[in-house]
Design a protein around this nucleic acid. Structure first.
Lengths: 343, 343
DNA sequence: CTGAAAGCGCTTACAG
DNA sequence: CTGAAAGCGCTTACAG
């Protein structure tokens, strides 16, 4: 670890070795066309020999562009952030850009501090990653460079927000169950304080109504995002309404709890009761007994989409409003046609 | 989103407003003591009025320090990376440093590319975050600034690696079960190809031997890191060895699978069979039925420790070798004294 | 096609 | 205590 910090190779070194001026060396390396082919060759060779890496700071100072963006997150610990972050990082790297990571941990003071820090570092733009898909206060006014919001929606419609399309996801899940021939479909989901929970429940209700079907159990059951709640709600619901033949769950943890309880109550998944989860959280969905049919939010792609819009804004083509990205139904073994087909 | 990129405030602006030279303004802002108090006051006031943020690029160009470190990860998607990353980010922020995030996704080409990129960006140091605690090839030779390895150990003993102490974790878990009075303790864990699995199994065996107890079931059972494996192994094991009164599991998913199977087989957790998990993965450990006693690796602190060592290296106090950070046993409801005390 | 010069925003000896 | 000057590494008109 204690290696000497050797003096880095500069453009001056390259120019000297190639026998040209720094100006010419610069042009040759930047593929400008005012350089003789032979000269360019010598410069490139010299740069290669010396393993020259242009100092990005110096370039940034001149051009005003750092090819760096600030990624401002609220709660990286939440499991939605990681795939999005990976998508962001991947898309940025493809565009030769780097990402400075700042997690505000939901603390406003800290967030302000980070915004200042990132601006002092001359980032070219921001990606603001929400920790839930509720509305969040716009930060754009304080930020003089392009900003894209992802996963969490900005409350200012002049901003651009790139969101997962929860209505689409809920529609995919519900229509899947309906098309399998399920007729008494219940919905067990997370806290009603979450916009995601409300939006999905509303779509669930609408799809059933349009299909002429009731909401089994009377109303969607709001609770928490846990297996525990899934177990509890399933037991209550199935005891009171033994005719239920499918449950659409607000996430894969709830679905896992429901599946375990259904089995414990001596009913079969998927024949007696089909179950759809939400999130495609691998450790839960794939490892459930049986593996869960679930909705994948395409989170990584969400991050990529956000970055592409940021690139557009950096190129002077800013957008605004809300972009909703479709979800994807992943069919596994927790859903199937009813054991006894309906008449 | 389409705000104009207004010309940023520079030190020159501040100096002009305060009626001093840029040199004096610089000294005043950097709290050097060769400035008259009244002058300093005026400069600070002017900077405040203009919301001046020094351009970090310019400063970096001069000082050769960017107050930025490169965080090189192999597989951010793995769940161990996030807490460590949060610890790293937090500790860096406390030291007024920022982190450039680069996830190589286990691809060597990509990793090389990122190393070059980060060096071109003049990072002051690297944190290399391994995706498993197996040995990994040292990157230090290619990197002219301090490097600290975290979670995954470098194969070069001259490097510094900051690791979770798996032997300690396994010891905590096993001794806990022994001290509760458990006498037939089995171990169900992940693939033997994982160093973590081997190390923990070895310690498990050693602690039992030292206590004069057998390894129940004959040998630790290596399999995979899933609930599925936990279910399967538990059924096999408990059928063949009905006297088993405790299971130490290689992670919380396995433990969850084991707990579910034990219940399905009509045995009680923790009275008949106590279960210890590993990782303290909240969504599994807290939400298991019953909640799991488990080992917490203190991952966030691992990241913080790594950064503190990086700071030391940046201050000219590099270390080398391996630092193992203790684990912590989190006791919940899946462990307790035997229903029928041993004689 | 090539190179000397200016300049990005800042810091730091150095002279006054 | 203050400020003019040099310089970090690079790019870009501009002159030759």
């Amino acid at each position: 670890m204690a290696r000497q910090r050797s003096r880095p190779v500069t453009l001056t070194d390259v120019a000297r070795r190639a026998g040209v001026s720094v100006a010419t060396a610069s042009k040759a390396l930047n593929a400008r066309d005012e350089v003789a082919p032979e000269t360019r060759r010598r410069v490139l060779q010299a740069a290669d020999d010396l393993a020259f890496q242009p100092n990005v700071l110096a370039r940034g100072l001149l051009t005003g562009r750092t090819r760096t963006i600030g990624l401002l997150t609220d709660e990286l610990a939440g499991r939605f952030s990681i795939p999005i972050l990976l998508g962001v990082e991947d898309a940025l790297a493809s565009g030769q850009m780097s990402v400075l990571l700042c997690d505000a941990r939901g603390d406003a003071i800290r967030r302000q501090h980070y915004i200042r820090t990132l601006l002092a570092r001359q980032v070219d733009g921001f990606v603001v990653l929400g920790d839930s898909n509720d509305l969040r206060p716009s930060l754009t006014r304080q930020i003089p460079v392009p900003v894209v919001y992802v996963y969490g929606e900005s409350d200012d419609p002049r901003d651009l927000s790139v969101l997962a399309d929860d209505e689409h996801g809920a529609r995919l899940a519900t229509e899947h169950l309906v098309s399998l021939g399920r007729r008494q479909i219940a919905h067990i989901t997370g806290p009603e304080t979450y916009r995601a929970a409300r939006d999905r429940a509303a779509t669930f209700r609408k799809v059933l109504t349009d299909a002429g079907l009731p909401v089994a159990g009377g109303d969607p059951l709001f609770g928490e995002w846990s297996q525990r709640w899934g177990r509890h709600a399933a037991r209550t619901l199935l005891t009171a309404h033994p005719g239920i033949d499918a449950v659409f769950c607000g996430n894969d943890q709830i679905a896992t709890g429901v599946a375990n309880t259904v089995r414990e109550m001596g009913r079969h998944v998927p024949d007696d009761i089909s179950i759809v989860g939400y999130d495609n959280w691998h450790e839960f969905a794939s490892d459930c007994q049986p593996p869960l049919t679930t909705v994948d939010l395409n989170l990584q792609q969400l991050g990529e989409t956000a970055v592409h819009h940021l690139f557009a804004a950096l190129d002077g083509q800013p957008a605004s409003g809300v972009i909703r990205q479709p979800c994807r139904l992943v069919v596994r073994d927790s859903t199937g046609p009813p054991a006894t087909p309906h008449p």
